[in-house]
Amino acid sequence: MTDPLIAVALVLVAVTATAAVLNREPLRQALVLSFLGLALTLLFVFVQAPDVALSQLAVGSALTPLMIVLTVRKVARATPARHAPEEDDAHDQDGEADR
């Protein structure tokens, strides 16, 4: 029976998912997300879903973390060039509220 294996994989998924949420630093989160992807892949293999396992491996543990890492790099590189605050004020009259 594969039952114990499924149970282990489920617990692993729950733990990595929680860790992915609690790691608030995006780069570290990307790494944990990739572990979550692997845990899900394992779970899908155990519940006899090889098709889904394959795409989860490709998307969940490679593509999505990769895109997050690229975004972090872009955002981190651009950070020093922050907009001057007075410019923000000039743009801030968001007509939604009249004060």
Binding site: L33, L43, F44, G60, I68, V72
Partner: peptide, 21 residues
């Protein structure tokens, strides 16, 4: 951090995979 938020959205979505399978 919005990047973190997008990651959390991906986590939320994985619940649907687990439930369906």
């Amino acid at each position: 951090n919005l990047i973190h938020a997008v990651g959390c959205l991906a986590v939320t979505q994985s619940s649907t995979y687990v439930l369906l399978l």
